[in-house]
């Protein structure tokens, strides 16, 4: 199932300006990641589409991040990464 969100042409500087190597501080990187991704949490959590795979492809492409950076760095609650309230 295709992703209804077009992640190809989005502005990723919200992440790339704050999450930088070589240290990739978790508070900055995970905060930036959530700021970018939380508006699309419903689409990303739907694992029957390609949204999360596509989004991470572009995040890693534009940020030149090592594979698995965010999944290894970011932990909140047992349910997942908590998004700020709207």
């Amino acid at each position: 199932k295709p992703c209804p969100v077009d992640f190809e042409f989005m502005n990723y500087t919200i992440i790339t300006s704050r999450c930088k190597g070589p240290r990739y501080p978790a508070n900055l990187c995970c905060g930036a990641f959530k700021d970018f991704a939380c508006p699309y949490n419903d689409e990303l959590n739907d694992l029957s589409n390609e949204c999360s795979s596509t989004m991470f492809s572009y995040i890693n492409l534009y940020g030149n991040y090592p594979p698995g950076l965010f999944s290894s760095l970011c932990r909140d609650d047992k349910i997942g990464l908590i998004c700020p309230a709207l």
Partner: peptide, 20 residues
């Protein structure tokens, strides 16, 4: 209230560049 979150299932897609 509805707490929004990014599931670890979605986050795990960061691990696999070429999932199949």
């Amino acid at each position: 209230s509805n707490q929004r979150y990014i599931s670890y299932g979605a986050l795990s897609k960061n691990n696999v560049p070429c999932s199949r």
